[in-house]
């Protein structure tokens, strides 16, 4: 009974959301809020014509590339800063400065300096995400258990073994934290990047629909993107978490 209730609640809440949307659409009776069925139809047509998969694919590719670069660089720099007090003291101000630069400024500057190119777009996203990753991983590296590191040294683990068996499992929750907040942040920035300087992708399409006041298409694209992010969480991140946390009681 308990388990069926637990699985039923999220489905039920989604249905209620849809019902509220439907009621509002009927009540307003305006093109500015099309009913769920209308949006569903637009979504389906978009999928059939290949438009949604194409633009979604382009945006996802940008997301994967920029996110991977930001995570790899951010982890490396974060570990170094977390373990080296002098470097940390030197670069701390840089981090605060980069954290407080608005995303829009970095995007515009990248386009001005490097042209309206793919690499400028990726670079803009990376620069926006990188400081967040560094700050999170730096916290993790500072919190590493000294006792376990000492144990690894006394038993001559070596660099590789220590990184793999002592450091990585301790950084894992921080990396997952950076991944989750990172995905949410990066895809919002990518849309702006596409809106300002690319001729394909979700951001470009949304800009187009905005000029046409095509709310149904905007909602259809949004649903497609939210669905993809949810699937990523459910099929990749959750299973990874379960596997990595199996030692916990």
């Amino acid at each position: 009974m308990l388990i069926s209730l637990r699985t039923a609640v999220p489905g039920l809440s989604l249905l209620v959301l849809l019902a509220v949307w439907q009621l509002l659409a009927v009540y307003l009776n305006s093109n500015n809020l099309p009913a769920p069925l209308v949006v569903g139809n637009v979504f389906w047509q978009g999928c059939l014509s290949g438009q949604i998969p194409y633009h979604l694919g382009v945006t996802l590719l940008r997301l994967i590339v920029s996110f991977s670069i930001a995570m790899l660089l951010g982890c490396a720099i974060g570990i170094v800063l977390g373990r080296n007090k002098k470097l940390d003291a030197f670069f701390d101000n840089w981090l605060i400065i980069f954290l407080s630069i608005p995303a829009l400024v970095t995007i515009i500057l990248c386009y001005v300096w490097f042209g309206l190119t793919e690499s400028a777009a990726i670079l803009a996203v990376v620069i926006n995400k990188l400081p967040n990753v560094i700050v999170t991983i730096r916290e993790g590296a500072r919190a590493l258990d000294q006792d376990l590191l000492e144990m690894a040294r006394s038993y001559r683990f070596g660099k590789r073994k220590t990184l793999l068996h002592v450091v990585w499992p301790q950084l894992y929750p921080y990396i997952m934290g950076a991944t989750r907040s990172g995905l949410a942040l990066v895809w919002k920035i990518i849309l702006v990047v596409e809106l300002l300087g690319r001729s394909n992708g979700m951001g470009y399409q949304l800009h187009l629909f905005f000029q046409l006041f095509d709310v149904a298409s905007i909602l259809a694209y949004t649903i497609a993107f939210v669905a993809v992010i949810q699937m990523l969480e459910l099929l990749v991140l959750k299973p990874l978490d379960t596997k990595a946390q199996r030692w916990r009681r």
Binding site: D147, L148, E150, M151, S154, Y155, R156, H165, V166, P169, A244, W247
Partner: peptide
């Protein structure tokens, strides 16, 4: 040069994830 040391610490210092 490199003697092998076995060190049993005051708290066991086992890796909880292994």
């Amino acid at each position: 040069t490199h003697p092998k040391i076995g060190y049993v610490f005051q708290n066991p210092r086992l890796l909880p994830w292994r």
